[in-house]
Design a binder for these strands. Structure first.
Length: 429
RNA sequence: GCGGCUAUAGUUCAGUGGCAGAACGCCGCUCUGUGGCAGCGGAUGUCGUGGGUUCGAAACCCACUAGCCGCCCCA
């Protein structure tokens, strides 16, 4: 019979790697807590309309990458509704902010989340249909300082701390400002105008982008088009005074904290809600990500709450591609060793099984990690089994049970000692 | 969604139309309470799935599925 397999773009995470996942998540929670963030858990599916309005109808995510279905009415009084597995989490967090009236607290909300997201893209290394993001949002009324450049710089400084604490090597921070919600349309219009007379000389992709999404032209890697791209209007020239000042203050704060960054005027992000500061952390080629070099991205979204029918609530946030972060760490630390148990108890002979399990219970209650073999194993087999999973083997034969003097061998050194049962726990720590 | 490459043992891979292979790993024995080394032996398998060509297909053809690479886009 044919076996049922995990569906395209999804995968199982087994213990040898969930250990790293748990470590990454623990470090993230620890860092977030120090910056005053609390965890939020939003539903894994939402009304389709949330993403259409929040992320943007014309974005690739919404127009072709969502898992959407019609939840049909089951009674005359029930309405059918279009639902979607969340393709990102910012829209959901802002929806929760509005719905739970968190603005009424008057406080800045600092919220983080860790969870699966879903996009129906073609899978590749570092790109899955169910993938995991670790993200955070700072959002609140203007009176709470949600619009302050301090928030932008704090988020970026926190991310640099997180990546350093995780041991990610060679990360690079790119920042840009895409301007306010009025700057951005003015710039896009100017870009379109500038592209009109020259786009016919550009590659096919860029000709299409010039029409559909001019900002994306800036991202192009096409070598022949670089000269034209360099001659296009710069976003910096279209920022109003407030946005220019805002960006300057973000940079000044980063400089003061010693966070290295690069201003990248071509950094545009694909989601419609971004305003002012946008950023991206990348790692160099050969860091385990294949062609994907962005491991996290984010930006400011001063108008998102209002787009979703909520109060004015400026915010800024980011999402880390956890799958990509794991790939990087696995590539940068290939020798990371599997965790070893404190002891393996080897009963000699089936009659010793009961005593072995009782001893294991005692050790485990004392906080030691322990595995128990089986009395039917030959001692040689017990040693082989023990060496694979534990640092030490405790031999429990007829003699040991009778005398209470146990034999303990440490694999790393080959040292073997006799230890009274009363002293065993201390000697295994 | 588009293009390319790939799919054979647990793993990495060889096998260009004629009996399904190697290395590593695994299991057993040499060795009845001492592993790592060594020797000997053993099991590896619907050759991704389905169809076609052929006397004969792991191999050639088609479709499908999945992975990887590139594009698009993004985390």
């Amino acid at each position: 019979m044919a076996i049922v397999k995990a569906v395209r773009g999804t995968r199982d995470l087994l213990p040898f790697e969930t250990e790293l996942w748990n470590r990454v998540e623990a470090v993230a929670r620890s860092v977030f807590a120090r910056y005053g963030f609390g965890e939020i858990r939003t539903p894994i599916f939402e009304a389709t309309e949330l993403f259409a309005r929040g992320v943007g109808e014309e974005t690739d995510i919404v127009s072709k990458e969502m898992f959407t279905w019609e939840d049909r009415a089951r009674a005359a009084s029930e309405k059918s509704q279009s639902l979607t597995l969340r393709p990102e989490n910012t829209a959901g967090v802002v929806r929760a902010y509005i719905e739970n009236k968190l603005d009424a607290t008057g406080n800045l909300q600092k919220l983080y989340y860790i969870g699966p997201q879903f996009r129906r893209e073609r899978p590749q290394k570092g790109r899955y249909r169910q993938f995991f993001q670790i993200g955070a949002e700072v959002i609140g009324p203007q009176s709470a300082g949600s619009e302050s450049p301090v928030r932008d710089a704090e988020i970026l400084e926190m991310l640099s701390t997180l990546l350093d604490e995780l041991g990610v090597k060679g990360w690079q921070l790119d920042i840009n400002s895409v301007g306010s919600s009025t700057d951005r349309p003015r710039y896009v219009a100017a870009l379109k105008e500038a592209l009109a007379p020259v786009k016919h000389r550009m590659c096919e992709d860029n000709q299409r982008r010039a029409e559909t999404n001019p900002l994306r032209v800036l991202d192009s890697k096409d070598e022949n088009d670089q000269e034209i791209i360099n001659g296009l209007p710069k976003i910096a020239d279209f920022l109003d005074a407030a946005s220019t000042e805002h960006f300057a203050q973000v940079r000044a704060a980063l400089d003061a904290s010693g966070v290295p960054y690069r201003i990248n005027p071509r950094l545009v992000r694909g989601l419609d809600y971004y305003t002012r500061t946008t950023f991206e952390f990348t790692v160099p080629d050969g860091s385990g990500l294949g062609t994907q070099n962005a491991l996290l991205g984010g930006g400011r979204y001063d108008g998102l709450s209002e787009m979703l029918g909520g109060p004015r609530a400026p915010g800024i946030g980011f999402a880390i591609g956890a799958d990509r972060l794991i790939l990087i760490l696995q590539a940068q630390y290939p020798e990371a060793t599997a965790k070893q148990l404190d002891a393996y108890i080897a009963p000699m002979g089936v009659p010793q099984n009961a005593a072995a399990l009782a001893l294991a219970r005692e050790l485990r209650r004392a906080g030691l990690s322990v595995e128990v073999g089986d009395g039917s194993f030959r001692l040689k087999k017990s040693f082989e089994a023990a060496d694979k999973v534990a640092r030490r083997v405790v031999i429990l034969g007829e003699d040991e049970v009778a005398t209470g003097i146990l034999t303990v061998k440490t694999f790393a050194t080959g040292e073997q000692v006799k230890i009274a049962r009363a002293d065993l726990i201390e000697s295994l720590r």
